[in-house]
Simulated scan of single mutants.
Amino acid sequence: MLFEDILIIILKAVDGERTISSPFHLLKGKKSGQTIQDIGYYKLYPFFGLLPRLDKKDYDKAVQTLLRKGVIVIDGQVVRVTEKSGSYNPEPNLLNGWKYRGKEHLFMDRLSLAVQTFSHIHQNSRLFDAVVIADDIQRWVKYYLQRIDFRRTESCQRFRQEIAESLALVKVEDQQKMIVMQRLSGYKLGGMTWEQISLDHGHGIIDIQLQAIETLHGWMEEIETGKFPLLKILLEGVIQQSSLTETAKRTESYFKNGRTLEEIAALRGLKTSTIEDHFVELAMNDPVFDITAFIEKNLFSKIVAISQEYNTKRLRAIKENVPEASYFQIRLALAAKGENT
């Protein structure tokens, strides 16, 4: 999937409801209340945090390209897509940013160092410059290799076989799989830089990186099935055990122990609005979270009805029609309603 395609998907979802900077914060993985709730409101989970190092200049350049093509227009404070956006129909993708939250890079670092070590050891070469220099990853991979008895020829063969078989199951183009392979280093073979791969495939660096990320997300899904035991160990600590951010989980713990919103804010030394953000995140991600502690059922139904009638999730527009509701209650109702809003 290309960067331009992802931008259009996001902009179509928030059409006329958000500013042009909204996709930037989403792709960077900003953990603000606004960004987190937009993920739920507009079902943008696949794209969260895909490009944490995305440069604003690169983003603005892509936006200007869409403006020049007439695909989007800036309308006051919001961005709207035009009829030309209808010609963009990207294929379904394997991206799952909300689940992995950038941890695909940890998986890739572990894999890269394991592949490099296997390659050198089985060529009787014990001295090499590690492709990953981070001490924590080197320690983890060293322990991992000992666990799987990496010096045995059978272990090397099985490791290589699992890579080939699992990657073959990933439903992306072979070119995308090649990008991931080109990043790996081995005996007398150095991994290619993003710039080199970009030139080799004729795509921009961001496009190349996104294709690698999509491949990794799809690959990790296959490995999670448990059919590839040597590779599955590489996912330890990589897979998110909770759909909540860490800070929201702490708020949830206090709430389950009977603390009120105000008490939680005081205990945690955070603003009340920040704790409200956490409750919106809970409503968005936990199907059994009971919001009636904050909003009556009749008011909930009224907010949802207005949202549907006017086809909007803009808080101000809903507030004008439901003045008795607080902005926090509106956000909760929209988050809890989920796909039906």
Rank of each mutant, 00 (worst) to 15 (best):
P323T: 04
V63I: 15
D129E: 12
K271C: 00
L184E: 09
L270S: 04
Y100P: 02
H105G: 09
P46S: 10
E324Q: 14
F24R: 10
M220T: 03
E276T: 05
F159Q: 01
Q175N: 09
H203T: 05
I39F: 14
R126V: 09
F289K: 12
I318Q: 07
K256V: 05
G186L: 10
I205F: 05
R183F: 03
L113T: 00
I295Y: 11
F24I: 08
A293E: 13
M1H: 01
V304L: 14
Y45W: 09
I318D: 11
K337L: 12
R80C: 06
I133C: 06
L315I: 11
K249T: 10
V131M: 11
R68K: 13
D75S: 09
P323W: 06
I20H: 14
L27C: 05
R259W: 12
D149Q: 05
L145W: 08
F107I: 00
Q34R: 09
E320S: 08
L27Q: 10
N340C: 08
R158V: 02
K31H: 06
G86D: 12
P323V: 01
V180M: 15
D136P: 05
K56M: 12
N96T: 02
S85T: 06
E296D: 15
G237L: 01
K31P: 12
L169T: 01
V78A: 07
E324Y: 10
L167I: 04
T19A: 15
E154R: 10
G190E: 10
Q241F: 14
Y327C: 00
T19C: 11
E339L: 04
T272F: 10
H25L: 07
E173P: 03
N311M: 08
S307R: 11
H203S: 13
K337S: 12
L26M: 07
L66H: 08
F328W: 03
K61N: 08
Y187I: 02
S243M: 12
Y100L: 02
E262D: 13
T193I: 08
E83Y: 10
K319A: 07
K227W: 10
M284V: 00
